[in-house]
Nucleic acid binder design. Sequence first.
DNA 1: AAAAGTCACAACCGCTGTACA
DNA 2: ATGTACAGCGGTTGTGACTTT
Length: 216
Amino acid sequence: MEGVRKGMWTPEEDILLRKCIETYGQGKWHLVPLRAGLNRCRKSCRLRWLNYLKPNIKRGQFSNDEVDLIVRLHKLLGNRWSLIAGRLPGRTANDIKNFWNSHIEKRAAAEAGRARAQKSITRSNILRPRPRTFSSPRPEPGLVTADTSQSHDADECTRWWSNLLEIATDNGDGETGLIHDACNKQQDEGDDVKEDFADFSIDVDIWKLLNFGDDA
DNA sequence: AAAAGTCACAACCGCTGTACA
DNA sequence: ATGTACAGCGGTTGTGACTTT
């Protein structure tokens, strides 16, 4: 489209977009500018809805628990902001990404600097995200449907999670794995991590993997 | 009071994966 | 098998508010 509007959204545009989504529902983003009568590209509309207009979006400061969870999930998943956001109800991937870039990254860098002074980094203590190489269809953690007919995919997904947890657990310096950290911490606080992760819809028994099942 | 610097957030861009013809 | 359209994601940039000098 020639000459689509860019920049900040006006309240009028927000109203038009909201009305359009209320009428037609989410999806078919390429039709949204036309339906809403907005001179915006579909990406802009989608982003505006997902990051700002969507109901139940939580705004304001991140709580300590949320920060803690973000740090742990980032260690586990890397910059997979949408996956991390999926574990934080009401928070958007963009919010988390911005928060990470402006707060946590700096803190992490400072801490890393201190840590570097204490011990050297070796190949074995670097936690790297694994490349996403799955057989088709890809069993994306957190997004895979609970279709038990796909036993092959389930196996592969299980292996994927096992790998991930292995990495996260064994960081080479004898520290407890972060998942166990999370469990222990939350159990101490009488909280229920399990509920936190309850909407993981994957076909592996993640609770077994995480040792929640047998009250580790 | 004003300029400069910093921060937080919103939005854009480019890329990848998927579905379908 | 290939090309195209679309959705979605992460990296990056822009902008306004706030703070410091």
